[in-house]
């Protein structure tokens, strides 16, 4: 049994999980590119974190990275 089999065998579990994570990432990316200033870090850092640290990067961005007015 290889990786692809594991995913196709458990599709009902993986589809919502993937949708959620992609949705969260897209929301975070839109927010990152619409704002210039962040509470900490810069744009490149947050884009990289969001893309490569799933789903923690996007969550971290919304909690500590997003500028609050």
């Amino acid at each position: 049994m290889n990786n692809a089999d594991i995913i196709t065998n458990n599709l009902p579990l993986f589809i919502p999980l993937i949708l959620l994570e992609v949705g969260l990432d897209v929301a975070a990316l839109i927010h990152i590119f619409r704002h210039k200033n962040y509470r900490m870090g810069n744009r490149i850092l947050w884009v990289l974190l969001t893309l490569f640290l799933n789903p923690l990067g996007a969550i971290l961005y919304f909690i500590i990275g997003r500028e609050t007015y």
Partner: peptide, 28 residues
Amino acid sequence: RNYHLLIIMIVFVIFGIEGPLMAKLTPD
């Protein structure tokens, strides 16, 4: 407006899916 509700919901929904998923995948 500050996404707190969104984040807490998404994180906990992921946990909800993860429970059965991990149980099913651990033997594999």
